[in-house]
């Protein structure tokens, strides 16, 4: 179990990581989610022993790691761009950690083959890193990290450098591989979909501080404040009368003074004249359509258009709001 207490890292006086408390239980995958520049990569490097702490402690199984250099921590770090050793073949990259431990050539080879199979790269052993695609390079980097049999795997935006389609597929693979190998992992990312697909638990980081932590679905469904909600993919945060009107539209009870975050997937817009609004904008998207609709008492809402429906701005529309796509933020000081 990894335990961070009051971890603080400064750069020229700026607190890049500010008194962070976190813990990762054995076998868990924790994702630290935050916008770029929030200090999450620095936090990861501090755990790896690559950045000195000015305050706080990092402990593994209750043992403080302050005096332990990177190579003795047993935490493998997988970089955003893989950082494969370009002068070594794929097999030698993957077998790097075992060769350091002085394993026999045959043993290394066997394990390398197993790992390459695990990440779906059979037959790539003798290729040079520069001849691989971005996705293949990240798979090799993952295999190389796993080969070190790390007590904890540190993942620095492991999929961010990849294109969207590949990212989706690789995220699923990553989740499977981590679960199958029972690896404890700490991942940092700015991509909420990536975090959602891979992690059991989520910590949201902003300006060097952890603002919310919990099980992925719980954080997902109940963001602690407006900024977090927007960062987690909610399209709008409404307050006051607008919030009440929206909750009313969804048929949910209205707690006093609450703010409401709404996902565009929860707003279903179709033809008709029921409780509705006026179409402002309409766009086809690869998997459907996106409609912006002006709803009385609420304002503009982004939503999903009914299949096959192609309105023009000004059309009257029926709007249905699914309460499962809403999050009530009890904090009255929620921001937009």
């Amino acid at each position: 179990m990894l335990e961070l207490k009051g971890v603080t890292v400064t750069f020229d006086g700026t607190r890049a990581v500010d008194a962070v408390d976190l813990s990762v239980k054995d076998g868990d995958v924790l994702a630290v989610l935050g916008p770029s520049g929030c200090g999450k990569s620095t936090l990861l490097r501090a755990v790896a022993g690559l950045e000195p702490l000015v305050d706080g402690s990092i402990a593994w199984e209750g043992q403080d790691l302050a005096g332990t250099p990177t190579h003795r921590r047993g935490f493998a770090l997988m970089f955003q761009d893989g950082q494969l050793f370009d002068h070594l073949t794929v097999a030698r990259n993957v077998g790097y950690a075992q060769r350091l431990r002085g394993l026999s050539r045959a043993a290394v080879r066997a394990e390398v083959d197993d790992l390459l199979t695990l990440v779906g790269l059979e037959g790539y052993a003798d290729r040079l890193p520069r001849t691989l695609s971005g996705g293949e390079r990240q798979r090799v980097a993952l295999a190389r990290s796993l080969a070190a049999r790390p007590r904890l795997l540190l993942l620095d935006e492991p999929l961010s450098a990849l294109d969207a389609g590949l990212r989706g597929r690789l995220a699923t693979d990553l989740r499977r591989i981590l679960t199958e190998s029972g690896t404890t992992a700490l991942m940092v990312t700015h991509d909420q979909a990536e975090a959602f697909a891979v992690a059991d638990r989520l910590a949201v980081m902003r300006a060097g501080k952890i603002v919310q932590e919990g099980a992925t679905t719980q954080v997902w469904g109940a963001p602690v404040d407006g900024d977090t909600a927007l960062f987690l993919g909610y399209s709008r945060v409404l307050e006051g009368a607008a919030a009440a009107a929206l909750l009313d539209l969804a048929g949910a009870p209205v707690p006093p003074g609450a703010a409401v975050a709404v996902r565009s997937s929860a707003v279903q817009v179709g033809p008709g004249d029921g409780r509705g609004g006026v179409v402002r904008d309409f766009q086809l998207t690869p998997d459907g359509s996106r409609v912006v609709v002006a709803v009385d008492g609420v304002g503009d809402l982004a939503g999903v258009g009914a299949p096959g429906w192609a309105p023009v701005p000004g059309d009257v529309a029926a709007v249905r709001v699914d309460r499962r796509g809403l999050a009530v933020i009890p904090d009255a000081q929620a921001h937009r």
Binding site: R45, F79, L100, S145
Partner: peptide, 25 residues
């Protein structure tokens, strides 16, 4: 600096980092 850090995170001591990553470069 990062390939060396990657090697250290895989368990390479400073001398091993030099021998396997820095020196080849």
């Amino acid at each position: 600096r990062r390939p060396g850090e990657a090697a250290a995170a895989l368990g390479a001591s400073p001398w091993q980092v030099f021998r396997t990553v820095t020196f080849p470069a």
